[in-house]
Nucleic acid binder design. Structure first.
Lengths: 234, 234
DNA sequence: CGTATTCTTGACAACTTTCAATGCGGGTGG
DNA sequence: CCACCCGCATTGAAAGTTGTCAAGAATACG
């Protein structure tokens, strides 16, 4: 909740309204599909601890992860207006979540226009991250993609207090990382070695350590503007 | 306006409120940057005629288009909650637009929760399209990406009455098409020839004709679920 | 009618995938 | 306690897809 607050200035009465609506917490194991594509929804999920991912499968078994959620993210708030998701939602690690029933969200959106805009902002921020991933997937080379995602995750985790300076836990496999980047696990492995040998960053054993942030950002052409870290006043 | 209505059931009073807020229409030439990344916004753009694109530039001159807008789309409604855009907005063709000042949108969101949710839905639909593009860019081969985008555009244009059955105007260059697909113009050219020679679709002279929709959809693994064409009841 | 884009094609290069094999480490059962 | 397994990481070699470069053809436009 503190984490959610950081991104969207919320008044005491608004926070109370939201808190009243939330159910849980609930715990989930890793690798569990939490929401299935197309299934009708009646609540949305706030991630408290762990990592979630949005992904889609192709018929030949390939998978593309389209977003990684960090603690404080409303993972499928868009499901509230969409009714169902176009993608699956899976736990990458063991997770703790809270649920906001859509009836409760409806009540909030009818009574708290400002809080509604804060929610709306949150889904728009997700969309902005999707766009940056499109740029990576479409135009950046493998090593640049990897560097960019590491920069993004470090920035986002720092905001919610889940990074210790230039190091943070990222307990996912190289294959999962590859599924974010539109690459194969084999190639990601090579690229991570390159980053390590260049002294830029080290991702091993479920932990990332960034040794040369400027270098990594330069390689990735990382510009955090799209993360809207200077949250708007509205 | 009729087109907007098709995607979001809007009551008479809501429609009137929106109409009262809209300014314009304004006309723009092709290839004009309408909104620049990072610039503070005080109105959002409703596309009435023509095609707009969201894009980002890289330092080496590469460009990635992250979204194509068709008539009826609110092109930068997300700018209302975000304050500024993370991308540029450009006209691909001559365009006619209307503008919704954010002061007006603020008034609407304070008075019409249901219309607010309709707006919110609209930005969530954009995000869904971003996700599908991530899948294309990350996992589909060049010819599949091209086929998928043609299917998507045909579906979306059909909804707003801008497609004539299996044919529709798409007055953009192969290079611009390539910028959507994360490919080079040269390769798009080859891929379009393949689609033509396979009897699937023909994109030439600013017009697309789909000769074998099932074949094209099969090649692309196109599933329109992500377009939320069965709009939700809320 | 001439000029500038855009389209088209070929040959070659670069990047990433595929296939295959080996190493590593943690958990489990004997 | 230790051997065995199994998933994950790592590496090499070969193949495939897409990009780059270059040139000529077609088309649009003034």
């Amino acid at each position: 909740m503190k984490k959610l607050r950081l991104r969207c200035e919320v008044s005491a009465s608004e926070e109370e309204a939201l808190r009243a609506v939330l159910q849980g917490p609930f715990d989930h194991q890793a690798e569990q599909v939490i929401v299935r594509r197309g299934e009708r929804l009646n609540s949305s999920i706030l991630l408290l601890e762990g990592l979630l991912a949005r992904y889609k499968d192709l018929s030949d078994g390939q998978r593309q992860i389209t977003h990684i959620h960090v603690p404080g993210d409303f993972a499928d708030l868009h499901g509230y207006t969409l009714g169902y998701l176009d993608h699956n939602l899976i736990t990458l690690t063991p997770c703790r979540i809270a649920r906001a029933p859509h009836t409760g969200l409806l009540a909030i959106t009818n009574r708290f226009p400002h809080l509604t805009r804060a929610f709306w902002f949150s889904t728009n921020l997700d969309a902005s991250i999707h766009r940056e991933w499109e740029v990576s997937l479409g135009r950046r080379k493998a090593i640049e993609r990897a560097a960019h995602l590491l920069c993004e995750l470090q920035s986002r985790l720092l905001v919610v207090g889940a990074a210790e300076g230039d190091s943070f836990r990222l307990p996912i496999t190289q294959n999962q990382f590859a599924e974010c980047l539109g690459l194969t696990g084999v190639h990601v492995n090579r690229v991570l070695r390159e980053l390590r040998e260049a002294g830029l960053a080290d991702f091993r054993g479920g932990r990332v350590t960034i040794h040369d942030r400027p270098g990594l950002e330069g390689l990735a052409e990382f510009d955090p503007l799209y993360l809207y870290l200077d949250r708007p006043a509205n």
